[in-house]
Computed example of a mutant assay.
Amino acid sequence: MEAVSVMLMTLKRQSSPKRKLLAAARAASAHLPHEIPPVLFLTDPARTPDPVRIAKSLPPGWGVIYRHFGAPDAGMIAADLAHVCRTRKLRLLISADPVLAMAVGAAGVHWPHARLAASRKWRGAFPLITASAHSPAELRAIAHYPIDAALVSAVFPSNSPSAGKPLGPLKLRQITRSAPCPVFALGGVMARNANRVAPFAGIAAVESLARAFDPAS
């Protein structure tokens, strides 16, 4: 009997992050436009070596941003992701690679801020285009480009090598009020703090989503 109780407690602890992220997704859905996913899972070759497996467990309506960073097998992984996303009704975006996005039938492209100017060439080519921003000034600059949503980072302290000083949820809320498009919170967003930004921003993350939805974790 004691062993069963321990097992049930373990299962409860394991499912808690997933429940919290699902609740945050519902809160984000309440204010985001229908065509914008409430949650975006960002892949990373080092931190999410099997993004296809994780995508198979994501709830319908969420999104995946595939970041291949020039990997030699990018075409194969993108095609596998596209198949999973179509099957599970997920929105697939390919980071900084519109040609690959076209080839696999992805829903759109995600542009790093440094390559934002390239988005103009692809205006109208995809249903969904997102871009990154790391400051209020970069977020304002997005208004001049065909961007449907912005991923603003870092919101919370993050281990990502590209993360800067965290904005914090209060600052993020302030800048979303004058943002030119819907905003996603990125950087240190986890199950325990997603509810602090979900009422006014979408959720974007790498590791916290991988841990919660990877069947192998």
Rank of each mutant, 00 (worst) to 15 (best):
A210P: 06
P72N: 06
N195A: 06
Q174I: 09
F126T: 04
I65M: 14
A194M: 10
I54P: 09
E138W: 05
D214M: 01
I65W: 03
M190N: 05
P59G: 03
K165G: 00
M1Q: 04
E207G: 06
P59E: 02
D73M: 14
K171S: 07
V155G: 09
W111L: 07
G188Q: 05
L8M: 11
P127Y: 08
A216G: 05
S15A: 11
A96D: 15
I65T: 11
R53Y: 01
R67K: 15
A27S: 02
P136I: 08
A103D: 09
W111D: 08
V6H: 03
V197H: 06
L81C: 08
A149N: 09
R26L: 00
L58S: 02
R123Q: 15
N193T: 12
Q14D: 12
P146W: 08
S160I: 04
A78F: 07
G188N: 10
R115T: 13
W111Q: 03
S119N: 09
P199C: 06
A55E: 03
D50P: 08
S5T: 11
V104N: 04
G70N: 15
A30H: 11
K165Y: 04
F213W: 03
R123Y: 14
P215F: 15
R19H: 10
R177Q: 05
A149Q: 03
V64E: 13
A55R: 10
S29G: 14
K20N: 07
S132L: 11
I147Y: 02
V183F: 08
L100P: 12
K12R: 05
I175Y: 01
L8F: 10
I142K: 00
P166H: 15
H144S: 15
S160Q: 08
Q174N: 13
A117R: 02
S158D: 03
C85I: 05
S217Y: 05
R26Q: 01
F184Y: 14
T176D: 00
L8C: 01
P161A: 07
L116H: 06
P215W: 08
M9W: 05
S95V: 05
D214V: 03
P169S: 12
L209G: 01
A141C: 14
H68W: 06
P51C: 08
A27G: 00
H68C: 04
A205Q: 02
T43N: 12
V4P: 00
A25M: 13
L170V: 13
P60Y: 10
P45A: 01
I36D: 03
G124F: 01
S178G: 10
F126Y: 03
I147N: 04
